[in-house]
């Protein structure tokens, strides 16, 4: 079982900043889409390096042919 953690800051004028933790790759985009449907328009998305790591369920095979 995986745990995902979100930190949500709702500013005094209602703008929302969402910090997504523990999710790599497209799973992250799914969370952004969910919050877009709940809150409103996406103003900005900043990805950290782990965003570009492959999803946990993706297996990369590196085969060498001689």
């Amino acid at each position: 079982m995986n745990v995902r953690e979100y930190e949500i800051t709702i500013g005094p004028t209602g703008e929302v900043e969402l910090h997504i933790d523990g999710i790599k790759g497209k799973g992250c985009l799914e969370v952004v889409k969910l919050f877009e449907s709940l809150v409103g328009e996406v103003r900005e998305v900043r990805h950290t390096s782990s965003f570009y790591e492959p999803d946990d369920d993706v297996v990369i095979r590196n085969q060498q042919h001689h």
């Binding site: 929302v16 952004v32 965003f51």
Partner: peptide
């Protein structure tokens, strides 16, 4: 941390 997103609220 994977991402930070900022949203402008829509009130319907």
């Amino acid at each position: 941390m994977s991402a930070v997103a900022v949203f402008a609220p829509i009130v319907i």
